[in-house]
Amino acid sequence: MEMGFRWDFAYEILPQMLWATLNTIIAAGVGYAIALVVGLFFLLGQRTPFKIVNIINREIVEFVRSTPLLIQLFFVYFVLPQFGITLSAWLCGMITIGLHFGTYLSEVYRGALEGVPKTQWEACRALNFSTIYTYRRIVLPQAFPIAIPGMGNYLVGIFKDTPLLSTIGVAELFHAATAVGGYNYRYLEPYTMVGIIFLILSVPAAMWVRRLETKVNLAQGKIKQ
């Protein structure tokens, strides 16, 4: 077998890899969108005045957060059919990623809401604003900037966890690389290219999130260092 990096082979598989990259981006985007919504539900469960709901919510979040995403994927993919629910690998992957990262995002939301000073609430109470008006016009506009860096971090996080979807057969970038590698019996180029594509996409994204974070901190009057 030829040693070293074969550029011609890398060039040959490039179009295939780029198409698969598109799938990875779609998977990350859809998973993120679901996670954003799921996070809201967990936040709601945490803030309802019913103690029982709070406790159950807390335990579910703890459980999902302290077990590996990989086994959760297997669980959803293999167990649901036992109960007569057969979903495609794509759907299973999206649901699992949405649920898993939804728990993380609910923590981001919570942190952001708690980041709004209590005095803001008291002032609204003093001005006789309704709760909904307080949320809509006073609290959420202040909480949102605080949540942005955390939300951005998890977007990058989801993007980097999409290769796990290949284990249940979602045809994203890593799956394509494994298939190409197996077909030609050369793993060097496909896996290296996957690494490079991930670097190209996630390093600028992470930098952008960090810039955003600095901006938010500046706007909040918390200048770092």
């Binding site: 980097k160 999409t162 290769p163 494994t178 896996y191 290296t192 690494g195 991930f198 390093v203 992470a206």
Partner: peptide
């Protein structure tokens, strides 16, 4: 910047 799974496969394969 790169995914853990990619690094793992890179190290092994």
């Amino acid at each position: 910047g790169t995914s853990l799974l990619v690094q793992l496969f890179w190290a092994y394969y």
